[in-house]
Design a protein around this nucleic acid. Structure first.
Lengths: 226, 226
DNA sequence: CTTTGACTTAACAATTAATTAACAACTTAA
DNA sequence: TTAAGTTGTTAATTAATTGTTAAGTCAAAG
């Protein structure tokens, strides 16, 4: 939904698969094209936040494609990054000239690739890659700012109490919260809700997050752990 | 109302239709004429911001028309762009001499045409095609400068409060604004309006923008998302 | 193998929050 | 001054959430 979109363009299906896999794992929405003309069309259609563009391709090469993409109004904020074989060093100059924002030499380790892409996107789209998001592990990310939770990169929305409960537990993974702790922190000092109320909220969270992340300690309380 | 006006002049109805379609899609107000004399009259009447003028036409050709239009007081700020077949290179000289601001060779891809036109208009009419317009997604564009909003390129006008509310929410898509946030930011620190007031304004916005873009988070607040 | 205490679960009730329509009070422009 | 539009209020309705109850599990202890 509010994900950043990346368009991959390369004529080798293997490379496409490989990059695609690694970027999707990071939560990006990934689109692919295998040659320049297709790339331009895709770019127009999905208006990606970043395009990873192989320089050497049959038909229309990366440089040409880049120039065309730069003229698209849909892509005025799009970052364009060239993928070049290490030897093709001319592409640095030609590419940046054609309107590219950066270039990356192949071969590259996925981690390095991902971190460079993240850095570029952060610089350009800071507001979307926000501070108050934190990854609590177990595939769960909590964003305090917009009261939203991502589970395996799928956004789910929680009602207030459930969110607060999750937030409390997840903010100190591993720590055990007694029922009393939880009542005081979430319902306040002078509440009169029954004990079962907590259980029920825990259950609702488990329904949404999966049964593993919140653990019960009989007679003691609950903890978040992954 | 505050749209930029473009006058298309060409003797081939097909070309006229084609360009007209592509430019209207971008939100311009498009007028057409099929020959020079008609073009001059139209120009006088609608005082367009830009005229796209085919060079080769029966009766009065583009160059003649251009010269006449340049004498009209209604068109002193009008940009005139010639459309020329790629071969007619003399037109570059003659055209620019006659008072044209640019020329574009046919055939041309609509995207390229549109982006060149946009660039020209932006340069000349910066104030209207301004930085403070931003496309917040979901087919909604907000122009802070003249308090106007476009939904799917249809301009709708919002009363002040509604505009401010939309602007606040849309300026940080995804972020949740609590009722308190909203009250403070829009009504000021020492407000005395009831809570339901916000709801009512939200409802009015939803009536105008569609129900999807503003989301409710019960017990928390509202957020803009597309 | 029953009992017991502690948690889970489903169904439902109570509560709280938001939507909506109708309208009143203000503002502005004609 | 009227008319039109904007802004804020209220009250009825609708919807979602939060909380309760009671039956059901499960594991450890007797």
């Amino acid at each position: 939904m509010n994900n950043l979109r990346i368009l991959l363009v390369d004529d080798e299906p293997d490379v496409l698969d490989f990059l695609s896999f690694n970027l999707q794992k990071e939560g990006y929405e990934v689109y692919t094209a295998s040659e320049g003309r297709e790339a331009v069309q895709m770019a127009k259609k999905v208006s990606p936040n970043l395009i990873l563009l192989d320089v050497m391709m049959p038909e229309m090469d990366g440089i040409e494609a880049c120039k065309e993409i730069r003229t698209l109004p849909e892509c005025k904020d799009t970052l364009i990054v060239f993928l070049t074989a290490r030897t093709e060093d001319y592409s640095q100059i030609a590419g940046l000239d054609a309107g590219a924002d950066d270039y990356i030499s192949k071969p590259i380790k996925p981690r390095v690739l991902v971190s460079r892409i993240k850095a570029l996107l952060r610089r350009r789209f800071q507001s979307e890659t926000d501070t108050s998001i934190f990854d609590v592990g177990g595939g769960i990310k909590i964003n305090k700012e917009n009261y939203s939770v991502k589970v395996d990169n799928k956004e789910i929305s929680l009602p207030k109490k459930e969110f607060e409960l999750l937030y409390l537990l997840a903010s100190k993974p591993g720590k055990v919260f007694t029922r009393e702790d939880i009542l005081h922190k979430i319902w306040g000092e002078d509440v009169v809700v029954g004990d079962r109320t907590i259980d029920v909220h825990i259950r609702k969270l488990r329904q949404k997050l999966g049964d593993e992340v919140i653990k019960t300690l009989k007679g003691i309380g609950y903890k978040f752990e992954f």
